[in-house]
Design a protein around this nucleic acid. Structure first.
Lengths: 219, 219
DNA sequence: GTAACAAGTTAGATTGATCTAACAAATTTG
DNA sequence: CAAATTTGTTAGATCAATCTAACTTGTTAC
């Protein structure tokens, strides 16, 4: 059984993995706000318990066991976020910190009930996929809005960043998952995009914003 | 800010306090399943942080600050139990362990929402009072069924013990909070009571059971 | 290809929470 | 009341998780 701290390391490794499943000690330490020696010694201990593979001076990779454990923690996190939004009336910008705590609760039935009450959702309130109860996560291939072309119509489907500040920015522009956007033009100088949607005939989105918005191209 | 462990000590002190608000080190250690030296050293550290009053070889008492903190943890525990039963379909015998974990979540709004959704309940699923958001708890003066007399009609209002086993026993006899019982007779030998209620014309309850059932006398 | 820099490691200390062994104080009991 | 028992304390060790300082390895840039 992984401790609270170990669970946080596993989750960080899961989220930081590159396509080869590798994470550097320095990225890990950074992401968890601990020093490199701390991350280093924790990785050694995770290795002893069979959660990760690790060799001196090499990047860390999760074992299948570690990968599944991490995915199930992410599942609990995302189910919780969905529950807070859909069943308890929270805004999508408020749920991260609470979910960060509730994801460590050991009570399978509690999360199974959430899952049922939500009708077995496959994405969380920010469009991120929810791993299934075996820890398998389907990969969506969404396009960053920043790579779309003027004239295209797209639908906002997910975010690459779910910080409170970003979500509050989206709220202020009335941008939500599902919103259909028409791309009117791109400013060559700073790559900002001018778009229209709903009752917003013209709205400018900086590149910083548009690269964090994932969309499905409609036409 | 109290740690997870400190919160458990505060809650134990709250629950174990005698009418003078005192708790012995040995009761505390017992209740938390730690050794006496552990409880002793933790009490010293709780004292340094202002949660308890303590002198060598004397019982421990909570300070007003400690008492309020403990009451607010108990509030989170009992609100959670009620939420699990009323909003998520759990049985009253299943909720203790989950609530034991969720009570440590730091997220005022999460518990405020539970409270609202439940309509500001004053008792939990086992009839125990829920402290208000200032940590004040109203005292009910219920009567143990064991002290009632044949001929009386009473209503089951709370329990002094909420162990899974006891709750499952009550389930098996279809005894729930609110059930009205008529006391038919008492067996002089073992103090067991014969009662009738609902569609149970005759049911025998041992003294061990009847002293854990708290009732309001109707007539 | 070596110097500079970034990344990773080792050593050693600290803190919180726990333990056992040994001793001391308080309480109960014959 | 003195002996026995229970309760409480001190001392010293351990383990998980963290740190800083100092050193080593690997990578990058000229």
């Amino acid at each position: 059984m992984a401790s609270f701290t170990e669970e946080n390391y596993l989750k960080a490794l899961y989220n930081l993995s590159n396509p080869q499943g590798e994470v550097s000690i320095s990225d890990l330490a950074h992401s968890l706000n601990v020093s490199m020696p701390t991350a280093n010694s924790m990785v050694k201990s995770l290795q002893k318990s069979g959660w990760v593979l690790y060799e001196k001076y090499k990047p860390v990779t999760l074992t299948p066991k570690g990968h599944k454990e991490a995915a199930l923690i992410v599942r609990k996190h995302r189910l919780t976020e969905m529950f807070l939004v859909k069943k308890m009336g929270f805004g999508w910008e408020e749920v991260h910190e609470v979910a960060e705590q509730i994801e460590h609760i050991h009570a399978p039935k509690f999360f199974e009930r959430m899952d049922e009450m939500l009708g077995h959702p496959t994405i969380d309130p920010h469009g991120s996929p929810i791993p299934d109860n075996q820890g398998r996560m389907q990969e969506f291939s969404y396009t960053p809005l920043s790579t779309c072309k003027p004239g295209q119509t797209v639908q906002l489907t997910a975010l690459t960043n779910s910080s409170t500040e970003f979500l509050e920015f989206l709220n202020s522009r009335k941008l939500a998952l599902g919103t259909q956007l028409k791309i009117l033009s791109r400013e060559a100088y700073d790559q900002s995009l001018v778009v229209s949607y709903d009752s917003h005939p013209q709205e400018t989105l900086s590149e910083k914003v548009s690269e964090r918005l994932l969309v499905r191209i409609l036409e």
